[in-house]
Structures are given as structure tokens and as C-alpha cells.
Design a binder for these strands. Sequence first.
DNA 1: TTGTACGCGTTATCAC
DNA 2: GTGATAACGCGTACAA
Lengths: 340, 340
Amino acid sequence: MKKQNDKTILDLARTLQLSPATISRALNNNPNVKAKTRERILEAASELGYRKNTLASGLRSNKSNTIGLIVPRISMFFHAVVITEIQNLLHQQGYNLIICQSNDSLQLEKELADTLYASRVDAVIVACTLHTTEYTHFDKLLHNGIPVVFYDRVPIVPYEATMVKGDDEKGGYLAGKHLIENGCTRIGYISGPLTCSLYKERTAGFLRALEEQGVSLNPKWTFYQELTYDNAMHALNSMFTSDRTPDGIFTANDLSAIATIDFTRQKNILVPEQLKVIGYSNDPRSAIITPSITTIEQFPVKVGQQVVEKLLHILQQPRQTAIETEIVVTPVELIKRTSA
Amino acid sequence: MKKQNDKTILDLARTLQLSPATISRALNNNPNVKAKTRERILEAASELGYRKNTLASGLRSNKSNTIGLIVPRISMFFHAVVITEIQNLLHQQGYNLIICQSNDSLQLEKELADTLYASRVDAVIVACTLHTTEYTHFDKLLHNGIPVVFYDRVPIVPYEATMVKGDDEKGGYLAGKHLIENGCTRIGYISGPLTCSLYKERTAGFLRALEEQGVSLNPKWTFYQELTYDNAMHALNSMFTSDRTPDGIFTANDLSAIATIDFTRQKNILVPEQLKVIGYSNDPRSAIITPSITTIEQFPVKVGQQVVEKLLHILQQPRQTAIETEIVVTPVELIKRTSA
DNA sequence: TTGTACGCGTTATCAC
DNA sequence: GTGATAACGCGTACAA
């Protein structure tokens, strides 16, 4: 019925003829324990299969050794890799990770922030939804001393938190420059909504490259929309209605680039001869499709490392140093393949 | 400094002139509270922004409302989808999910089982590593009343737990049958290690199909190995050394099938004309590569649903009903594409 | 260096 | 239907 097997520090205290306080100290590496006593205790602990009750410990110390993560979806390759890295590093430090998916729903993101708060997590890591433009649902976390670290999709308005983001401006710039250097003059653009930091910056960089080279973007070939396969197809169909058609397209994710390749097959458009295509993220599919897709690598492992590094740094601080805005930018790189 | 803002049921009790017990009852839908009283309480709770401390609650009730999940890697598409489904369904029921990755390391799997046990999770969901052939590290969970549900990669020896698995025998059979029906007579096979339930069963089904049609498997074209890209390439190289070469290959995952396609390009072998290829899992990449790969769909969403259904059923039972072995088999389906 | 005693917030068990 | 109170297991002032 009950968990009869569960030993507590009281059990240890009894068998060792010591006080529970000493047991607790020994187990928490408190220096005020004689080396020999500690040894005896640790030995007995593993002997009896003692395991600390993290709930009781957390209740007392107001720490749960658990960190929450909110992410749009784990099935996106980029996020899967980032999360894996975060999880492995945190596990090494003795932290548990609660992973939650917002499914790109702002409503759900708010709910999850609440749940994590109620679960007394020690910190929260967030990649926002596509539609998160205000961040008040994270306020109560921050105001109660629970650090929040954003990554990838970060707040687009000033917000006092730590952020780790890819160099999206540069990524957009590299894409634009590469298209033009390869002779494109009639350029199409499929972007995500500008409410999201990623696309706002990719767009800025992309436009900077075009301007620099004196190429202008045709508004009729420019789309800001959720980056689904179907949406890309619609955009492409409308781009290729008149006689004058694009000779280069930059899509702000790889899924849209894949849709573009599929579209060119249907319409017998030759890639890269008649149309050059650049995607974003270096999704594994972009390397496998024919023609393989030129894209922007985001180094997800590095992103994960940075997130954890910053987080541990904050957690080690003597609690409640003033919240500051810190922005870490991780590198990007153009991966040249066949499509451009 | 402190979390001054945190209201407790004592705060509620004080402001409402009620006892903490009543507050607790109202908040937990205990019927022994007058409807009107409950209303007052709930109102005051949301008014004051009360949030139950799940640590304290868990300490007292010996439940954490948290469920642990151990999986080889979340970046595998199949698992990502299963986990997403599990996570969404459990969230609806008020459970948190701690996701852990074993990276296919038995050592780490054991460690994670321990950690989850120490975290007082209410249940554990497991997809084993490739190398898990004994299951004693889950014993202490089961013996302490923590249910364990296996899915996908399940124990290959009798073990008293609930398991949700794909119909791998049928999947293997469908693959074998399809190859032969399409005229293959010289058949190669790249499988995972037979220590893993998946490959053991896929192999059994595959062999059954061959036997049924009177086709025999050439041992020189049969490989049991970890299913990486490089390993597949090695196997293929050795299959295609002599004059007599296979005209059909079944690979027990899609990554190996993708490697096979790449290999045929290098060697100018025509697929499906000279060689037919069937993979397993319906990874998104298998649909995108040229030629697209015929494969076996495993319906990950259904797997996730079954896991949660069984789990909730167990959790609702009056605790510690005898542990029983229950096996749920989820469907598979042949997806016909170009490669076969 | 070690022991005593109390509190963390909730729920279970009694009483009424 | 409601209240008083003792646990749950651990950490930490304070005392020794």
C-alpha cells in the first residue's frame, strides 16, 4: 500500500545513532561535518538505498531543481536539437527539465507559463509562439525571482530578460546577397509574419542586401504569412501567374523552400537554371531533396549551450540581482547547395 | 527577496474566516462543501491569485502529478510525434511531463529511471534503448507502485507491465510480400539488432513472407546492425561486390533506405527498375527524396493515444492492483511510393 | 562538530 | 458541512 521501502533521513539517523540534521548536512555537502562522519553517512545511504524526497526538499528550500521549457513544437528539427542539448547539459547539473509545447498558440503559452509557475520551477526557458507580441504572462515569473531565458523567437519589444538568438539579420543578408551574386534580378520573398522576431530581422537583413546591390523587391512577390506548405504553394501560384516571373526566391524557412521545389517540378521550371531558391534552418530534408537546397545553418547545438550557460550563471547568482536585459547572438552560416 | 506574493490556503482561510481544511476541500472538488461556500472560495482564490503549491501537495498526498518519459532521442520523427500527442493529452488531465533522452545508452537509461524515481513521478513511460535486454532497473518503480508503460521498443522477455507496440511482424510481412509481388527474387535485408523487439518482429514477419512465397534470404545480403547511414553504406558496398546483386532490399528504418537511394545514385543503379527499396517508419524524408521511398506507416498519433489511455486507466485504479502484463498492438500500413 | 526544534503548504483524520 | 490538528520529509536557525 504505502511505499514501505522509502527511507528517510530519520531512518538513517536512527540506524547511525545520529541526528537527522547531521544526515541532512552530510548529504548536502555542508562543510560542518567531520569527514569520517560524512563517509559513514554516505555509505549507509547508498547501502539502504536512500533517496532524497525532492518534494519535501523543494518545499523547505523553495527550490525544485526543475526547469521548465516552452517551445512551439518539438517536432521541428531545429528545436529538437536545441532541446536535446539543453536537456543533456542540465541533467549533468542535476536539473530535471519539463518540456511543454505551445503548438504556436498564445493562449496555450500563457496557460503553460501559469502551470510552470504553479509547479515551482526554478527557471523557465521559452521560444515564443508566432503570435506572441506581449509578454505580461511572464511577468509574474520574473517578479517572483524565477529567471526566464528566451531563445530563437525572442521578444520584439524591450523586455528585461536574457535572450539567445541567431543572427537572423545576417542570415537574411547572406541569402539576399547570394541570390544577387548569382545573377538574380527578379526576386520573390516568402517570409513569416513580422510579429515574430525571426522574420522581422531576416527581412531587415534581406532588404539591406537588396538595397546594397540596387535591386528592389516586387511587393506582388512578397508574402508575410505562416510558413506552411500550403501557404507557400498559394504564394508561388500567385507569383507565377503573369509573364514576368521571379528568377530567385528566398523563403524564410526550409519547409517553404521544399514547397517551392515541388512547385517547380509541377510547372517544369528548372532549378537552379531558371529559378534559384534559398531556404532557412538547414532542415535535414533540405539536403535530401533534389535539387538539394541552399540554406542558412543556425547551429542549434551552440544555441542550446548558450542558453544553459546563461541560465546557470543566473541561477548561481545570489538571488534577485536586478533583472537585466542581456542579448546573446549565435552565428549563422550560408550552406551552398544546388538550388542556388 | 522572498516570494511575498505567494498566497497560501491559510491566507484564504484568514480572509474568508474559514478553516484551511475547507479551503482545501473546495479546491479539490471534495463534495463535502456547501455549493455556496465553494463559490466564495473559488472566487476569492482567483481574486487573490492563489496557486496551489504542488510540492507541498505532493509531499502530503504522495503524488506529484508529474509523469516521466524516457525515450532514445526526441529528434526521431516518430518519437517526436508520439511524445507530442502524449504531452497534449496529459496536459489536458493536469499532468506535467518530464521528458528524458537516453541517447540509446543503457547506462543513461538506468540513471534516468533512478532520477525519475527520486523525483517521485506518478508513472513512467519508456521506449527502450537499442541495447536494453534486461529490465531490472524498472523493478523498483513497479514495486513501489509506480506504473511503467512501455511503447514502441518494448521488453523482449516476459515482463509484468503494460506495453503499446506497433504491429512489427505485420510490417515486416507487408514489406516482404510487396517486394516479391513486384517480382523481386534476389532479396537483401538490412535490419537493426535482434536484441530490440522492433527488429526481432520485423524480421520474423519478413521471413514469413519470403517463406510463404518460396524465396530464400541470402545470408551474405543480410545485416543486423545499428541502423546508421554509414553502416547502411557498408552493408550495401558488400552486397554489390560480386556479379550477382540483389534486385530488392528491405531496410528496417527509413534512414537506411535513404542511404540506399544515395548509394544507387553513386553506382548508377536504377530504382525501381533494377532495384526495389522499402523502408520503415514513414519519416518525412522518405516522401521527399527522389525516388520517393515505399515504407511502412506506424501511426504515431495512435500510439500516443493508446499509451495515455492505458496509463490513465492504471492511474485511476485503486492503487496497487496486481501488476499485469498487457500488450496493445497498434496498426501499420504499407505506403506505396516510387521506390518499389 | 553535532543535536534540538520548528516551519515550509497541503491534505487526512478526527471531532463536532 | 465545517473546524482543529497532526502528519508528509527535509533544511536550518539556534543551542550545546
